[in-house]
């Protein structure tokens, strides 16, 4: 369960004399276990900042959030034990193999060696990347690297997943493998926060969504609700219309 309560993040102005930047403005929503909650918005809308606030690497200026009841401001270390993060534009340690990367993050999450080994093999099999498990990450393709990110986020079997555009820049096959993985994780009862601006993907994996514009949440609901219960409506059109309404 993720509950955000008036979550706000303001950054110092990039130059003196300019106003401060409000990246996230009083955002409140709730994502439940066994649900993929989509956080949608255009580039720069505040999706990544929201996810960074939830992963405790940024501190909110106002408001807070609770992850399985733990406060991100007061109990950041407990929060970090409950989350698996796939962030946009992240890299891997080029000189470590996927297996070593999973071992590193598994140990950092206090998972024992035997469990790490077992889960690593399961994850490599599920993501169809066994043959790359012992190659150095520097030699892997972008798609395989992204699969390593997903596997790394899952190595501690966290109840909450924060996924920031996990399929960005991937080919169709790799993107599909990642999407299927997310759907499977949902089935295991995990709470999944999923940010994206690819609407076809959103339709495929998300149960409920919130649309963020200029840092503020403009609408929240199930895909059905947002489509106005018209089964044949394209969600991309709905998204563009809602953004247009938000502008006014």
């Amino acid at each position: 369960m993720i509950q955000t309560d008036g979550l706000t993040k303001r950054f110092a102005p990039p130059k003196r004399g300019l106003p401060e930047v409000v990246a996230v403005n009083n955002v409140s929503f709730e994502a439940r276990p066994g649900e993929v909650f989509g956080l949608l918005g255009e580039n720069g809308a505040g999706k990544t900042t929201t996810l960074r606030l939830l992963s405790t690497i940024l501190a909110p200026t106002a408001g807070t959030a609770r992850i399985l009841g733990y406060d991100i401001v007061k109990e950041p270390e407990q929060v970090r034990r409950l989350i698996g993060v796939v962030a946009t534009d992240t890299g891997l340690y080029d000189r470590l193999t996927p297996r070593e990367t999973l071992r590193y993050f598994g140990e950092l999450n206090d998972v024992d060696r035997a469990t790490i080994e077992r889960r690593s093999n399961e994850l490599f099999a599920k993501l169809q990347m066994e043959e790359y498990a012992d190659r150095r990450a520097g030699q892997l393709s972008k798609g395989t690297k992204q699969k390593v990110h997903v596997a790394r986020a899952m190595i501690s079997d966290p109840p909450v997943l924060l996924l920031d555009e996990p399929t960005a820049g991937l080919d169709v096959t790799s993107a599909r493998a990642v999407d299927n993985f997310i759907i499977e994780a949902k089935g295991l009862g995990k709470t999944i926060l999923f940010s994206s601006h690819i609407m076809s993907e959103v339709e495929k994996v998300c149960d409920r969504v919130a649309i963020i514009q200029h840092g503020a949440l403009i609408v929240e609901g199930t895909l059905e609700e947002l489509k106005g219960h018209k089964a044949d409506a394209k969600f991309e059109d709905v998204f563009v219309r809602l953004l247009g309404e938000g502008q006014r």
């Binding site: 690497i57 970090r80 993060v85 962030a87 992240t90 340690y93 993050f105």
Partner: peptide, 14 residues
């Protein structure tokens, strides 16, 4: 530069 800092800081260690 590699973009590994963010996920490291999102892991449990202080």
């Amino acid at each position: 530069e590699r973009g590994t800092m963010e996920v490291l800081l999102a892991a449990p260690p202080s």
